[in-house]
Design a protein around this nucleic acid. Structure first.
Lengths: 241, 241
DNA sequence: ACTAGTTGTCTAGTTCATTAGACAAATTGA
DNA sequence: TCAATTTGTCTAATGAACTAGACAACTAGT
């Protein structure tokens, strides 16, 4: 039938069930080590077939969130979503210190381009002005946590990318340009589904949800320094204001 | 086959295409009145069949975002996502003033309950303490924008719900308790898929994405006043810090 | 009037998602 | 050891999602 009016659906039931259970775990309703309700009970709760529930559980098991043990039940393995504080002074590594053992930032690529209207406005430039664009990927304990694209004014930071590769820290690179301090001027937050590239780089399942943050960092005088578009997997991160 | 390893998928292609196009429109890549690429071009861009693209466009047409005209093409009808500023002083109605013509808040229900661990911690109470729970729905220009659940200490605000029904404004109710000013103490932001009830109340299609904000309002002395869990449709709202 | 380009509709076939039922395999406690 | 409970595996059937191709209907420009 597939009516034009059938606007419902589009997200498979097994995925919605997996999302709901993951949410219960992350939200604290189920603690690490707890036994989940049996497959039969879950099937009834979600008005689904046991096989559909099993598929959802298989996905969660694959993510390491739960583990099934034949004859015993299915148990919560890990949990916890990392928190990323957003404030005046937002520094990736400092923010997550203490929440994870190892933090790594990988430089993916960089290039010169002409600023789009959006980028130009964010950086206070004219549309078409030369800007440096840097693509990066950050991980905690081996799990990708953020896919970020950063734009900077080429006139102010001509070799930003090269210095970033050498220094491995945004803060350090800014310091090398004589900028010892900077603040988060504005942050816009939205959410959407991940696209193919993001899915792959962040190691997500297709259809995963991303928190998208568009941030402008500015010097202490208020002049824009960088415009960053960061994408966080909603299942691993939350933003704290 | 449906391997256990096949963790991919779960979100229908037509929905991902619809989300992507909507994002282009909201993000400004396509302005109101612009003609979309032809169905054939879109099909190639998304590596999908033309029929699948047509289904995505049908959904967007149903939402009023685009409109197809036989022989001419498909055109952008409306656009724009509302911005919800999050700051020290966060007042729903003030924040959205100027972005919409009419703002309405609907009281859905209220009840007394014993605080869960989460709520108790947020409000600085002991788990199990009596709290007032209020369910509400806010709309702008007739479109639902936020589904909120608010918890308050019963000892401090025993008849909060009744006053809210009478006064129609959270700020006014707090004022009636002698609280003339309060600030946003913390906000945690995450994202997930909408559940059945949220889908229905917010007038969304199943599988839509919500921005979830958990906010604690506090008096000027820092003592918690209310704990609110608000859910915004990501396709209609963005949060600005 | 004609042509090229675009959306609208129809048929058909394949793969994925979901339901249904049955039984095996492992665990736990009586 | 036995019975109850739970997860693991298999087969089968139905409907939704997606692909494929063909052609009709409409628009705009020549």
């Amino acid at each position: 039938m597939t009516d034009p009016k059938d606007v419902l659906g589009g997200v498979a039931l097994w995925r919605r069930i997996a999302d709901a259970i993951r949410l219960d775990i992350i939200g604290g309703k189920l603690a690490s080590g707890d036994r989940l309700p049996t497959e039969a009970v879950l099937a009834e709760r979600f008005s689904a077939n046991r096989h559909t529930v099993r598929r959802a559980l298989a996905v969660l098991a694959d993510e390491g969130v739960v583990g099934a043990e034949q004859g015993r039940g299915t148990f919560v393995r890990s949990a916890r979503r990392l928190s990323y504080p957003i404030g005046k002074r937002t520094r990736f590594s400092e923010n997550l210190a203490g929440q994870a053992q190892t933090l790594t930032s990988r430089h993916l690529s960089d290039r010169l381009e002409n600023a789009s209207a959006t980028v130009a406005q964010a950086l206070g430039l004219k549309a078409g002005a030369k800007v440096v664009r840097v693509e990066g990927l950050s991980s905690a304990d081996g799990r990708p946590l953020s896919r970020a694209t950063t734009w900077l004014d080429y006139r102010k930071f001509p070799d930003f990318a090269a210095r970033l590769v050498a220094l491995h820290s945004t803060t350090a690179v800014f310091a090398s340009y004589g900028i010892d301090d900077y603040v988060r001027a504005s942050t816009r937050i939205s959410a959407r589904h991940a696209d193919a590239e993001e899915t792959q780089l962040l190691g997500l399942s297709a259809g995963a949800i991303l928190l998208v943050s568009e941030a402008i960092n500015a010097g202490l005088d208020g002049s824009p320094i960088s415009y960053a578009l960061s994408r966080f997997p909603a299942e691993r991160m939350e933003l704290v204001v």
